[in-house]
């Protein structure tokens, strides 16, 4: 087998909050074209890791490389422009804008910066056809004119994914995409994630282990801010330390 093609790698990633180390020397390699899951008990530092990788938090130490390029000191918006786009735990839609507008705001990024305040927004109609396609992909066509804030939770997540995909990111970071979802939504979003993973790399934090088992090629288990185990689901799920961490946390 040839050397794995690493798209995103972190070395000795560390984040200290006053007196508390949330993430401690984490090494992470995400292989191109795979679905990589980050799991671990509550407080393991998964979301902090995510925030560090997308620079929504500044790491205390360590380096992050995307496609071999050091992005450790970049601003979050700049990282998004490179093609690493994240989602959020709480569904991240623009609640007062319509479904169409939500997706269009991502497509609008292709114009570069939109500081043209003197121009009629009709120029954005050029993106409508593509926005409709994206919305169709996630099955929201009948809600296209609806205000995003009034959608059901599952549909908000779907809209969020449509918006993210509109940027055509090389890499997606999904923070608990299934959190708080009804079972039928879970299977729909699962199928959607699998479909979109065909052309891109996905790193996700997820609690729903059956989803993780089903979707991911590789799993990294975090506990107390450190990497506990790594590998495919079959190996990781049998690792006694992982079982210990989960059960321990359950009783703690």
């Amino acid at each position: 087998m040839s050397a794995p093609d690493i798209i995103l790698s972190a070395r000795q990633l560390t984040k200290r909050f006053s007196g508390f180390t949330a993430v401690n020397g984490v090494d992470l390699d995400v292989e191109r074209g795979t679905i990589h899951a980050l799991i671990g008990p509550n407080g393991a530092g998964k979301t902090t890791c995510f925030n560090l990788l997308t620079k929504f938090l500044q790491p205390s130490a360590g380096t992050i490389k995307f496609n071999g390029r050091d992005i450790t000191s970049m601003a979050p918006a700049a990282i998004a422009r490179l093609g690493v786009v994240r989602s959020f735990q709480i569904s991240a839609v623009f609640p007062r804008m319509s479904v169409l507008e939500n997706v269009r705001i991502a497509l609008q990024r292709r114009r570069g910066d939109s500081f043209d305040f003197w121009r009629n927004q009709k120029v954005l109609n050029d993106y409508d056809a593509e926005a409709r396609e994206r919305i169709e992909e996630v099955g929201l066509t009948e809600f296209i004119g609806e205000t995003a804030g009034e959608l059901s939770y599952g549909r908000k997540r779907a809209l969020e994914i449509a918006t993210t995909l509109a940027l055509e990111p090389e890499m997606l970071l999904l923070d608990e995409p299934m959190a708080g979802m009804a079972q039928e939504d879970v299977s729909r979003i699962s199928a959607l994630i699998r479909r979109i993973s065909a052309k891109r790399t996905i790193l996700m934090v997820e609690h729903n282990l059956s989803v993780v088992a089903d979707l991911s090629d590789k799993i990294t288990v975090l506990a107390r801010g450190e990497v506990l185990a790594e590998g495919p689901y079959e190996t990781v799920s049998k690792d006694p330390r992982v079982i210990e961490a989960y059960i321990g946390a359950g009783h703690g």
Binding site: A75, A77, A92, P95, M97, I105, R109, F117, Q121
Partner: peptide, 23 residues
């Protein structure tokens, strides 16, 4: 305007606007 659209997006959800690459 296109600017106004971005503005409303930032008003609605600032972190999300950043994650879409808007400064």
């Amino acid at each position: 305007s296109p600017f106004g659209q971005v503005l409303k997006a930032i008003r609605d959800n600032e972190p999300r606007s950043i994650s879409l690459g808007y400064k």
